[in-house]
Design a binder for these strands. Structure first.
Lengths: 212, 212
DNA sequence: GCAATCATACATTCATGTATGTATAATCAA
DNA sequence: TTGATTATACATACATGAATGTATGATTGC
């Protein structure tokens, strides 16, 4: 019983990635063996080694299925020309929160990335790319808030660097805590409320002004 | 060359825990072998198996050196009798941020706990206890904010549950992001500013009021 | 016929746990 | 005080299992 059509091969590849999400989420990345994934997917390790180089490569491919559509979304949001950059940023985040709550792939992959794997060099070039992605993300957020200051949406003496770090910590912390306890609150509704309050406080609170 | 005095034995035990912090932080918990820790500490695995049952037990003891003094601090803050519970909470968090930036043990253990280990059952009863600690923590935060509402420090229609989740996500996200990039901002100064702005926004923002 | 898509079999490495050895400190008897 | 005894604090050696990577085999589409 050996599948041969290219369609069927892609099917098993996707099934392997689906299963990897599940097993990684349950047992953690480093604790799961390739035999675990293979048996859970109803195949043997031979199938895995045919489609992927090793566990790191499989992990990488699993992340790509989430990262690629996510990059399209954030890239699609025209950053400089938009009238209200803060509202656009909040809208993007709201979409992410919505995606994580409704798309099981997003949910599991983020769960694995945040709580079920160790960000050390053993994962190969994954950590490096994550660092680069984070730098890109930081620059993008920085531009958005600077843009908001220039447009008068935020006070002129806003401490943009502080705001950027606060936003990254808050938005990520909300997602991360929800993944740990999905029943604690409604990520889409309440997460958006939290960040909306944060956006509001940028205008009202003196704590975000530059230190004299 | 075999040490024998109880003093020397405690010395090697502490040295093992110190080394475990370093190696765990560098290679991740599951990727480090007991031989790694032993050789880095200048002993053999025999020393580890004498002082600890296995890697999970060693990990547990490493966490205890941080958890125990931390519990003393939070327990020492009288919760119900304090005049301004929000200020006391902020003070506690500021102390934690201060500790993490100045005490290398706190820094490394939190780094390991947040970014260098997988919270799965393979760590034994550690995950269960972490869940219990989180529940206790949630209850404590809940009491603090409810107390603040009753004392009129926060609006009467404050959505306490939402505030609790927001505080936990924010305060933890700040710490976690700083651990990933310690150079991004000053945790003690800026982290406190961020949470102070959050506390302020609880009074001013409508987003934290209960939904009609 | 060949090449793709797996399954199977095998060799290697490696971490763990335990068993044993050993030298010294602590304890105690005389 | 001293010598013998015992438990301590490790080091060393060994057995086991398990995961990996690869090599090879088998089957089928093209």
């Amino acid at each position: 019983m050996v599948r041969k059509t290219r369609e069927a091969a892609l099917e098993t590849r996707n099934a392997l990635l689906d299963t990897a999400e599940l097993v990684f989420s349950e047992k953690g990345v480093s604790a799961t063996t390739l035999a675990d994934i293979a048996s859970a997917a109803g195949v043997t390790r031979g199938a895995i080694y045919w489609h992927f180089k090793n566990k790191a490569d499989l992990f990488d491919a699993m992340c790509d299925r989430v990262r690629l559509p996510l990059e399209e979304i954030t890239a699609a949001s025209a950053e400089d020309e938009v009238a209200d950059p803060l509202a656009a940023l909040l809208g993007n985040l709201e979409y992410l929160y919505h995606k994580v709550t409704t798309d099981e792939h997003f949910y599991r992959v983020f769960d694995v990335l945040f709580n079920k794997c160790e960000f050390v060099d053993s994962l190969g070039p994954i950590v490096e790319r994550d660092t680069r992605v984070r730098e890109q993300f930081r620059l993008r957020i920085q531009r958005i808030f600077s843009n908001a200051v220039q447009r008068g949406l935020l006070p002129a003496d806003t401490d943009v660097a502080l705001v950027v770090n606060a936003y990254m910590a808050y938005s990520k912390g909300i997602l991360r805590n929800w993944l740990l306890e999905p029943g604690a609150f409604d990520l889409h509704r309440d997460g958006t409320r939290m960040v909306a309050a944060f956006m509001e406080s940028l205008r009202t609170s003196d704590a975000f002004r530059q230190l004299g």
